[in-house]
Design a protein around this nucleic acid. Sequence first.
DNA 1: TATAATGTTTGAAC
DNA 2: AGTTCAAACATTAT
Length: 243
Amino acid sequence: MPEGPSIVILKEEVRQFEGKKVIDVAGNSSVDIERLKNKTIRAFKSWGKHFLICFDGFTVKIHMLMFGTYRINERKETAPRLSLIFLDGEINFYTCSIKILEGDINDYYDWSEDVMNEKWNPVKAEESLNKIPNQMICDALLEQNIFSGVGNIIKNEILYRCKIHPESLVGKIPTEDIKRLIEESVIYSFQFLDWKKNYELKKHWKAHTKSTCERCNLPFIKKHTGIKKRRSFFCTNCQKLYQ
DNA sequence: TATAATGTTTGAAC
DNA sequence: AGTTCAAACATTAT
């Protein structure tokens, strides 16, 4: 479910309810969701993997974590964490994290950190990377305050495209390669979006879950890398290690 | 059937 | 006090 592009798809799918009033609420969330009843949705937004439902004066923040799902105008068998009922439809969220952010949503998020946001600022990302020269690039790419929306799939794919070993240290990677990685984080995220919409995302994976490098015909290394210990799939022949 | 996986927060332990 | 790390959450495919 997660990764930024999937949340962009969700945002597009619920656009029909923007400006609509929530006529009933249900769900097993531990936060006070009753307060949504009879309130009007002003906007749906997203910041990376965060899905945001904006009301007057507060915002519901939904994070799908690893297993979150949703249904629009239909229901799953299992109990919803949050159901929003409208006159002409409903949105149901399952097994997600729900929090309420009080006040102006712009006080919580820097939109220029979101690789899929129109305010995305690649220069800021480069400056942020310059501040963490000793971290591995596999960890840096997953930093949501630098590359909001990038997840483990996108990480693996862009490192492969840019021919950078995931355990390379940020400060040792040539500037031009850093710039290229930042560019690819956006390019791949939007390709991910298109492919996912067409149900053909996995078909285009070149690294993630792969066992052979199609450039070299050599076996991939599969290893849990970095402080975050997330799966990395890489080719030691064509992905250069800077350390 | 057990395991691992597109993720993050929390709080105990050091 | 700052860092580290396991636990917790929870679903589904292999």
